[in-house]
């Protein structure tokens, strides 16, 4: 019996180590892939800039040509893509876990749409910029999230009802965005594309600051709640039994996720399906070896970086990143709806 316990103990210990090593390895690999995608964006565009030239531009040296191409064009794009991708990836999976349904990501249920409409209104109608746009966008995102929750509340909220209502609300709000754009004084095509499908075409380094703050603040908070979120995947009752204050966790996590989304869309628009795709991809890779939050953020960053690269350079004409991720996400959405219909999927 003692021997037996000993070996069970060892097996438990090894199993736990195996899971955490595997998780850490995967996070490192994902981080590496993100940095490769980031570097490629800096080095290779319509022309090739040698890595050493890129490095000296990054270090602040002035090189004719390279300073403009790398410093002004590629770097802002890469940095914004990275930050926005991480924001969307983490926010998406937070929603999916909290509402226990892969369809419940903010870009499907109208939260992103609401935040976008608010940003468009603030920029084109009120002529605001910077932090005030972000604040406007966050409050509207929260308001939409609350309304969807309220509309689908009947003795508790079930995932399916919330998703259906969210899709409806989303469609309604998107039409508001279109209306606002058509009324705007300075109506131009670039702007419209940004707000309708998401784009990093007008990325500037100055935009990195709000994104970085939001990632540190909201993303950092989410990371601190990562373990509680994992427990919530086992149902509210079980999570409560394990000592989690379920309501408090759910509210604070969703508010943070809305913050990440809203600050992101105020800058790049709602890059289609990045929030929706990141979590499920992370889950296929992790296969329950650990928390989904951080991997999902890295995958979001990969999706935006590579999506933008493909849209710019690998297709016959140029497309904004949202068109590429949209084309990737749509088939998955269809697959998911079929699968959820068949056996009721969860994340």
């Amino acid at each position: 019996m003692i021997n037996n316990t000993e070996s069970t103990f060892t097996r438990v210990k090894n199993g736990r180590k195996y899971r955490s090593v595997r998780w850490a390895r995967l996070v490192v690999i994902l981080g590496f892939i993100v940095s490769v995608a980031f570097s490629i964006t800096l080095v290779l565009g319509q022309s090739f800039t040698s890595p050493s030239d890129v490095l000296s531009v990054l270090l602040g040296h002035k090189l004719p040509g390279a300073s403009f191409v790398v410093g002004q064009l590629r770097l802002p794009r890469a940095v914004i893509s990275l930050l926005v991708g991480m924001s969307f990836g983490m926010a998406g999976v937070a929603f999916q876990i909290m509402l226990r349904n892969p369809l419940a990501s903010p870009d499907i249920i109208g939260v992103s749409a609401g935040a976008t409409a608010a940003a468009v209104f603030a920029i084109t109608m009120l002529h605001l910029d910077g932090a005030s746009v972000a604040l406007f966008s966050i409050s509207m995102g929260l308001l939409v999230a609350l309304s969807i929750y309220g509309l689908s509340y009947r003795n508790g909220v079930t995932g399916t009802r919330l998703i259906l209502i969210g899709i409806g609300v989303s469609a309604m709000i998107e039409s508001i965005t279109v209306y606002l754009l058509s009324q705007a004084q300075s109506w131009d095509r670039q702007e419209a594309i940004r707000w309708l499908s998401g784009s990093v075409n007008s990325a500037q380094l100055s935009q990195a600051q709000p994104l970085l703050i939001s990632l540190l603040l909201f993303g950092g908070f989410l990371l601190s709640r990562s373990r509680d979120m994992e427990a919530l995947r086992m149902g509210d009752d079980t999570a409560q039994a394990l000592g989690i204050n379920v309501n408090m966790t759910r509210i604070t996590v969703m508010v943070s996720a809305v913050g990440l989304i809203a600050v992101g869309v105020a800058i790049t628009g709602p890059i289609a399906f990045v929030a929706f795709l990141s979590g499920p991809i992370a889950m296929r890779l992790i296969k329950n070896k650990g928390a989904l939050l951080l991997p999902s953020g890295f995958i979001g960053a990969c999706l935006v970086l590579t999506g933008d690269y493909i849209g710019q350079f690998l297709l016959p004409s140029r497309y904004p990143v949202g068109v590429i991720t949209g084309a990737l996400g749509a088939p998955y959405l269809i697959y998911l709806i079929i699968r959820v219909n068949r056996k009721g999927g969860s994340l």
Binding site: G15, R19, A231, M234, D237, T238, A241, G243, L347
Partner: peptide, 25 residues
């Protein structure tokens, strides 16, 4: 401690992983 009526197992989770989550509190 409490075992609720219908707990949910996250997709693909192993027994060892699930049991270890009891250590959460």
């Amino acid at each position: 401690g409490l075992l609720p009526q219908s707990p949910i197992a996250p997709e693909g989770i192993t027994v060892g992983d699930l049991v270890s989550r009891g250590r959460h509190p």
